[in-house]
């Protein structure tokens, strides 16, 4: 078995250390090594967005990041979106707006949408569709996802 590398990183605000082979993707280590199975593998090729996490504040497909590249990075996964036992407004709005059916794409959409709202607190429908086009959903037809993100944006803005 190949030699393993020691990586120190921050995941969802907690300093985390792990050992990995250079060939292991960040997605594989999150899921298999760290039991953070909320990030999903849909294509393992950067085409579906189900594995989206934030790396230093930007959304990335964790299947296209080597785990060794996470050294010194700040990572946010779906497990880090709810805070102190409270759902993030995006999560709450996805539930109220029925923006998920099977739910497999949902973690990737919520992380991607959070990255979007962090930068653009009031996105248009077009901006939501353009910026999240790297996230595929096969169940909903996307309609309720747009509406739920817009609703969350409104709630976040009225809260500040």
């Amino acid at each position: 078995m190949a030699k393993k590398t020691h990586v120190t990183t921050t995941i969802n605000g907690e300093e985390t250390e792990f050992l990995c082979e250079p060939r292991q993707s960040l997605l594989e280590v999150l899921r298999e090594g760290l039991d953070l199975t909320g990030s999903k593998e849909g294509c393992n090729n950067g085409n579906c967005g189900a594995c989206t996490v934030m790396l230093n504040g930007l959304p990335v497909d964790s299947c296209l990041v080597l785990a060794v590249e996470a050294e010194g990075a700040e990572i946010t996964t779906i497990e880090g979106i709810a805070q102190q036992g409270h759902l993030h407004p995006l999560q709450q709005c996805f539930l109220e707006g029925a923006a998920l059916q099977c739910g497999i794409c949902t973690p990737g959409f919520i992380v991607g949408a959070k990255a979007l709202l962090d930068r653009n607190p009031n996105p248009t429908e077009e901006e939501i569709r353009f910026n999240l086009a790297g996230n595929l959903c096969r169940c909903t037809g996307y309609d309720k996802i747009v509406r739920s993100i817009q609703e969350a944006a409104e709630r976040l803005q009225s809260a500040t």
Binding site: T52, D61, G112, A115, N131
Partner: peptide
Amino acid sequence: IGGWQIQSR
């Protein structure tokens, strides 16, 4: 070039 996730990298 890809979606946002790709463009981040």
